[in-house]
Design a protein around this nucleic acid. Structure first.
Length: 659
DNA sequence: CCATGGTGTCATTTT
DNA sequence: CCAAAATGACACCAT
């Protein structure tokens, strides 16, 4: 028959086995050793405050946070090994009631003190009622219950409600917390290996690391148990040893849960570890006004991200709103939306818009008249803003500045009669040096080129550009201002057009921006080859594709960054939670040790109060000590001998440890 | 007016 | 070696 597990059991770090056989009575001390099948972290480790157990969580507690069967098998194996106790001292229970029986002058206890074996009393008295105040079992309560009382254990999302933020945002935050929940919780194995050791590791390495961590922890426990074994399984020891060990064991044993084991960076959050508000701020600092909700879309198994994904999909038709008419397109979704038709029908509603349209048409005409590309001409109407969207040729310009003359020669191919003007304009910066475009020009038939000319001349508008106005530096009518004017005067749909979309529209690019960006490489190249496009159009299409790809890449990059930040935040939360659990465990161990010390002291005093020497005088406990030998006898030994024996035992234990 | 965060873009590096 | 992706840095804009 086994006594209930002491309330402090579950520490797993202080393995103090005391076999005190006094007159046949056996007092077994087994502190903080988790019983087979349980892990102290499973009992003590509370849930992460930002991870309230919800039904929507993809990982329930029964699923072990998604632990793999291999890991569960390893955990079971380790527990079985621990349960066997090999080669450690077999685990025993604290038979506090025995101490009580001795202290209260129980007859069996007295009899046991005299040296007769009465180990059966342990079994017979196992169900005796424990002593009221000092019995640790009476103070036993579930660590989870402790956790429930801990205000810090409240879900952060609930606390956030008090932060004055809307419930919807709180829901989002909660979803975010759950979003990052499984990503690290399922990586936390049952042996409590810190998640931060593995959270950023590839999943394939997790198992190996898990094995290493398990071995590591088993080794730590082995050392702890061996130390206890070396101290206590010697041929003999005294109660003084027990006192000394109890005095030294807390610090020693608690090294395993020392706060120094927490990674150093946690020290920065040490002060606020007891404050749930800290968790709020941590999450809040990242979640506040973050418009990167799409970032969550990358992570699977997340309701929040799935919701956003659905929202994004619902908005996708709107994203295709800027698709242009292309009869050759086989993509149905790229058809011309009515909104765009409406927008085109509204061209006369705004004089400014007409002016801008005329300007662009004039630019096209200028390009024809001067042999200068419309893009270059259009640059004359903007400031040299690298962010203008019209600076797409900036890289080419910088890389081919020395070839400006050749570029102008190329431009002469369009209109050889204006070479001098080409030079003049080229000095402004209107170079068009990309050689690949000329390859398109080479295989293009002249008739097609003239068709392009006719097409552009068809939009002829009288537009005269003064040479002085061509200086971009002096041009105050910048692109951004133009965009502002356009966006300010047009409807919302027009305002949502990006610069590339506007330019593509102005240059009559027969493809939508989405098409250009999302099209596969082969399709893109074949599309360029199939269509007769001007160099400007090809250049713009390529730039649109490059910018679009890069835009998506930048978005993905930022999403990854945000995910990393969230993951780190989650790691911080986990480590804080573990730190709190370890602190509670340490406090419980200290309390248990104190109780044990007191009980042992009482027992010691009681034993000596009953002992008499040969003359019938009481034995002074300050001069003598009780020493237990393996043959079951208890000797009263002068303390001088005990101290010398302790030194020998300590030396022997040290030698065995060094082996 | 300033601070902050989101976003687009370019240049460069990495894959 | 080249193309695409990734990323740092910067500028602009909205709040």
């Amino acid at each position: 028959m086994k006594l209930p597990k002491p309330w402090w059991a579950g520490g797993g770090l202080l393995n103090l086995t005391l076999l005190l056989s006094l007159a046949g009575l056996r007092v077994d001390l087994d502190l903080c050793l988790p019983p087979p099948g349980t892990s102290f972290r499973e009992e003590l480790l509370p849930l992460c405050p930002t991870r309230p157990a919800s039904a929507s969580s993809p990982f329930s507690a029964s699923e072990g946070w998604g632990r793999s069967p291999q890991l569960l098998a390893k955990g079971r194996l380790l527990r079985e090994v621990r349960a066997l106790g090999v080669p450690f001292i077999p685990r025993t229970r604290v038979d506090a009631w025995l101490v009580h029986s001795v202290a209260t002058g129980d007859a069996d206890g007295t009899h046991g003190l005299l040296g007769t074996a009465a180990s059966s009393a342990v079994e017979d008295g196992g169900q005796a009622a424990p002593e009221g105040g000092g019995d640790p079992r009476e103070a036993h309560h579930s660590p989870l219950a402790v956790e429930e009382e801990d205000p810090a254990a409240e879900p952060t999302a609930q606390v956030r409600d008090t932060d004055g933020r809307g419930s919807q945002e709180n829901d989002i935050l909660k979803e975010k917390s759950e979003a990052v929940d499984h990503t690290s919780q399922h990586e936390e194995d049952e042996e409590g290996v810190p998640a931060h050791l593995k959270s950023l590791q590839p999943s394939q390495k997790d198992e190996n690391k898990m094995i290493d961590a398990l071995d590591w922890e088993a080794e730590v426990i082995t050392e702890s148990r061996n130390e206890s074994h070396l101290h206590w399984s010697d041929t003999s020891f005294s109660l003084e040893d027990l006192f000394q060990l109890l005095s030294s064991q807390p610090e020693h044993s608690l090294e395993g849960i020392s706060l120094e084991d927490i990674p150093p960076f946690l020290s920065s959050v040490d002060e606020s570890v007891n404050s749930s508000a800290h968790n709020i701020n941590l999450s809040h600092a990242i979640s506040h006004d973050v418009n990167l909700h799409e970032a969550m879309l990358l992570c699977p198994n997340n309701t929040f991200r799935r919701e956003l994904a659905r929202t994004s999909q619902a908005q996708e038709p709107f994203l295709q709103l800027n698709s242009h008419v292309n009869p050759e397109q086989a993509i149905p979704s790229m058809s011309f939306p009515p909104a765009d038709n409406q927008m085109r029908n509204l061209t006369s509603q705004d004089l400014l818009y007409d002016l801008d349209a005329n300007i662009f048409d004039g630019i096209n005409l200028m390009s024809l008249a001067t042999g200068f590309s419309p893009l270059e001409v259009s640059q004359l109407f903007e400031e040299p803003d690298s962010d203008s969207g019209l600076s797409l040729n900036s890289s080419y310009t910088t890389t081919t500045k020395s070839n400006s003359h050749c570029t102008c020669d190329d431009a002469v191919g369009y209109n050889s009669g204006l070479q001098s003007l080409c030079h003049d304009l080229g000095a402004v910066g209107g170079c068009y040096p990309e050689p690949r475009k000329h390859c398109y020009m080479d295989h293009r038939t002249l008739s097609a080129f003239h068709q392009d000319l006719k097409c552009q001349i068809f939009h002829d508008h009288t537009y005269h550009v003064q040479p002085g106005v061509l200086e971009p530096k002096s041009e105050s009518f910048t692109w951004s201002e133009k965009s502002k004017k356009i966006s300010g005067c047009h409807d919302d749909l027009e305002r949502n057009l990006s610069r590339d979309e506007q330019r593509a529209k102005e240059l009559h690019i027969p493809f939508s921006v989405d098409e250009i960006v999302q099209m596969p490489v082969d399709s893109f190249n074949s599309m360029l080859s199939r269509h007769y496009l001007t160099d400007l159009q090809v250049s713009l299409i390529r730039d649109i594709r490059r910018r679009g790809k890069n835009k998506v890449a930048a978005q993905n990059c930022r999403k990854r960054k945000l995910n990393i930040i969230l993951s780190l935040e989650d790691d911080i939360c986990n480590l804080q939670t573990k730190k709190e659990a370890l602190k509670r465990e340490q406090a419980q161990c200290n309390k248990a040790i104190g109780i044990m010390k007191q009980k042992l002291h009482d027992l010691y005093q009681d034993v000596f109060s009953r002992l008499r020497d040969d003359q019938g005088r009481p034995v002074n406990p300050s001069h003598y000590a009780l020493q237990y030998s393996h043959n079951g006898t208890v000797l009263i030994v002068p303390k001088e001998l005990v101290l010398s024996g302790n030194k020998k035992v300590a030396a022997k234990g040290k030698r065995e440890r060094t082996k």
